[in-house]
Design a protein around this nucleic acid. Sequence first.
DNA 1: ATGAAAGCGCTAACAG
DNA 2: CTGTTAGCGCTTTCAT
Lengths: 329, 329
Amino acid sequence: MKATIKDIAHESGFSIATVSRVLNNANASYSSKTAKKIKKAAQKLGYHKNNIAASLVKQTSTTIAVIINSVKTNFSFEILNGIQKEADKNHYSVIILYAGNRSDDLTKQAIETAIDRAVSGILLVAIQLNQENINLLNESRTPYLYVSTHPNNPTKKFVSSDNHLITETAVDYLVNEGHKKIGLVGIDHHTTGKERLAGYKTKMSINKLPIDKEFIQYGDYSYESGQKIMKEIAPLIKDGHLTAVIAASDMIGAGLIKGAKKEKVSIPNDLSIVSIDGTYICEITSPELTSITQDFTQIGILSVQSLLKTKDSKFVPIKLIKRESILHI
Amino acid sequence: MKATIKDIAHESGFSIATVSRVLNNANASYSSKTAKKIKKAAQKLGYHKNNIAASLVKQTSTTIAVIINSVKTNFSFEILNGIQKEADKNHYSVIILYAGNRSDDLTKQAIETAIDRAVSGILLVAIQLNQENINLLNESRTPYLYVSTHPNNPTKKFVSSDNHLITETAVDYLVNEGHKKIGLVGIDHHTTGKERLAGYKTKMSINKLPIDKEFIQYGDYSYESGQKIMKEIAPLIKDGHLTAVIAASDMIGAGLIKGAKKEKVSIPNDLSIVSIDGTYICEITSPELTSITQDFTQIGILSVQSLLKTKDSKFVPIKLIKRESILHI
DNA sequence: ATGAAAGCGCTAACAG
DNA sequence: CTGTTAGCGCTTTCAT
């Protein structure tokens, strides 16, 4: 039915070994005439390589596994896009495994599936690993990389934005616009949140700005979370005790705007917002959200390059994009 | 290194054939005692099935390929989520292949990759196939299914919303709210657009409502498209020649709202909008968008079920969700 | 109920 | 430069 290298061997008069060599461009240990003949035969028979067979003997496949949380983050899709694009370019295919809602069990299951399939590498998108899963990964000797997460362990490889820099840039900008009462809202208690908090504190301190306890509000990066937080901080805003916040995500920013409407808080007149992420959400809200924009597509692309080739860790540059949610005072 | 069935055979004292039977629950042609022993041995050795080897001999894998356009649709992720969830449940894994921006060449490439990997089925998410690609698919004898697309060929299998019903429901609702001058904006020239247009025309006609040429505006489902269209129709609205529109997507709806601000058109006072899709975008805009909501997660789930088991075509129910973008007149 | 043996299609020594 | 051969780990007749 489907043509195999055996058929090509028959058709061209060479052995399957030679056919295999030619078709894989193995160190040119064949004459160009042979190559031409074999390629022609392959063409004629409509040959397609059976990657499964190749994987079996090579004990590795040209497949990259992406493990991802199923939480509703609107940027994962962009990262995936970047990964996909770069994988395609290198003739790799991508299999996506969900780790549920940050569940260690499901993460373990995903890792096992990846290992079972003998993938050539694993991309952990916004995934936090417990020790058991780290061990599992290490024992498998499958290369892996943290994507959009910056592990505190310096021996681990990652590709992500620099969380410290993100909040530092945001504070600087806000200070430049005349703000002194600046909050940071919607961050989580994990690495990402901690780093952003650290960057924020650093710059606040450098600028000799006090940090009220209420300036820092935790959340889960969601729209609902943003609305809830606005309810919390509305009194402060009305009192003039808070004039600007850094939102931990666009969705938090959007939730803040929504909540502000209910609380009769005017954005940006009563409160300036700079949101972290810079996805298309920023343009849909009214007012549009000024943002510290992450280059998610690039994060995806570079993570594949790192996994397959460079093996480097990398911070991907961020950008401040001015829209309408900041008031100069 | 890694345990294989050979190791289990050794450990348990049975042959690899028996081990294979037990581990695959093959028609109980083994005693339960044997089964117990073998399973214990497998457990002890930390055995994991090498699916690649199994795929090679069975000529099929427990992998589903999803072919998808890389266009920025905010709902593909939801469909993917549903697919993933249901695939997981059935112990299938999912590989995602991008077909670029509706490119026939890239689609062909994606199909070939899928076939190469001997996937057990292909899900075409919002993909339009040309004849060459249809042939390719048919020759491969790989089962495939249209997802979120309703092919005009009745022999093809699909899982999607009923596009006719979507616009019919929208028109009915708008008429009920007292509207008579109703437009349909942002649709494309492909099947989806045509079906929505047909549903719209049907109900307009039943309600004896005239359809002005300008009532129908084409687009590409994007935010920008929505803004452009608003520029186009703003004069009509101001004249009172148009009081309501059905937006072909949430992004079109959001673009309309954005454009309306520029054009000094008030939503919903000057124009009512009901948007098709009902993703989270509808809650972020101001006013919130009333929508005909598609159940994308369910579409994903049912498409896997259809591919793997039922082989049925299916329309997934839609829902009208009232928010703030409709004025009763 | 169980085992032996033949491959699935391919790659990679090893010869020549 | 090319061919022979031995598997990769698993499933599946065909015997027993």
